[in-house]
């Protein structure tokens, strides 16, 4: 049985445009023109238990809206979803106890109190047994290396430490499903790494299902085998992250370093010049021309060093966004 099952989820909302000035305000008072925005057009996917899925898309693609619908915060306009056997937007308390949502830009911790108080509050809200609570707290804080910080007021913690506390608070009731909305936003690299390692561990150790959105490719690369990409409310891709390149695999990248200045124009006939100056040039070209171009370039230019690479994933994804839906 699927853990999360989403079918043709669709969400529109109505907004009003208001021109500047008093005249337009008056006009709006009497006849507002309703505009409809389709945040999520038609999204379907299934996620099995224990999976860790990355949710990618540019800003405004509909990622957060989808997460909100799957956690019951928003009603969809149409479509269905089944999460752990519940319809999320019925907001049953039994359902709420099974999952947790962490948003990188919003905090649930009480600013002026030590994090342990907010965590204890969540214990009461989620009705966690004393035993389980103590064990979870010890375990989680040890994994995140923040035992000593539990009794420090949240406002004195650094951003990274605060995020770790948020995670503990969100996981204290051992949710089987965890939604993360940009959990590493604004963190420094060591903290990002720690959070990633922790999430990976949590996913493997407890078999928790994780659905994660992030703009840091590294988050998704490290954590998630599977990636779902949406843009403008449409599902563009659903599969392994590294296989995205297969879609565009006809392209390769060649980096060339010269010992003496070379006019760029002379290379233009071999492929698309991505960047470069007199000594360094990066070329993008179709795979099938690789052999022929390599030979020609090596023969006719003063090459010091050269490498052949795949197109970076970020590039592929950007191309994907531009290309709209692929198969």
């Amino acid at each position: 049985m699927d853990f999360i099952r989403v079918r043709e989820l669709h969400k529109t909302f109505v907004y009003y445009r208001k021109g500047a000035g008093l005249k337009n305000s008056l006009k709006n008072l009497f006849a507002r023109k309703a505009l409809v925005k389709e945040a999520v057009k038609s999204v379907s996917f299934d996620i099995g238990p224990g999976e860790c899925v990355g949710f990618l898309g540019p800003n405004g693609a509909g990622k957060t809206t989808t997460l909100k619908m799957l956690s019951g915060i928003l009603y969809p306009t149409s479509g269905e979803a089944n999460v752990l056997g519940y319809v999320p937007w019925e907001r049953k308390n039994e359902f709420k106890r099974l999952f947790s949502i962490v948003m990188g830009q919003k905090n649930q911790l009480w600013w002026d109190l030590p994090a342990s108080e907010s965590i204890y509050l969540n214990k009461c809200i989620y009705d966690v047994d004393d035993d389980v609570y103590r064990r979870s707290l010890a375990e989680l804080s040890e994994m995140l290396e923040v035992e000593e910080l539990l009794d420090v007021q949240v406002r004195r913690l650094s951003l990274g430490e605060r995020m770790k506390m948020e995670l503990i608070a969100a996981l204290i009731h051992r949710p089987r499903l965890l939604y993360l909305d940009e959990p590493t936003i604004g963190l420094d690299f060591p903290s990002q790494k720690k959070v990633r390692e922790f999430l990976k561990y949590y996913n493997e150790q407890f078999g928790a299902t994780i659905l994660l959105t992030s703009h840091y490719m590294k988050d998704v690369e490290d954590l998630c085998k599977r990636t779902i990409i949406i843009n403008e409310g449409n599902l563009l891709y659903d599969g392994e992250l590294h296989k995205i390149n297969d879609l565009f695999n006809e392209q390769k990248i060649i980096r060339l370093h010269f010992s003496e200045p070379v006019a760029e124009q002379r290379l233009a006939k071999f492929g698309k010049i991505v960047s470069g100056d007199e000594y360094n040039v990066v070329l993008e070209l179709p795979k099938h021309r690789l052999k022929e171009v390599s030979r020609a370039v090596l023969d006719s230019f003063p090459i010091v060093d050269w490498t052949i690479e795949d197109v970076p994933i970020e590039e592929s994804i950007s191309m994907l966004y531009r290309k709209e839906s692929v198969g």
């Binding site: 909100k68 956690s71 019951g72 915060i73 907001r91 308390n93 039994e94 709420k96 106890r97 999952f99 947790s100 949502i101 948003m103 919003k106 649930q108 809200i125 989620y126 009705d127």
Partner: peptide
Amino acid sequence: GSLDLMLTKP
């Protein structure tokens, strides 16, 4: 948007 988080509490 803090209300969002509260909505998910049982």
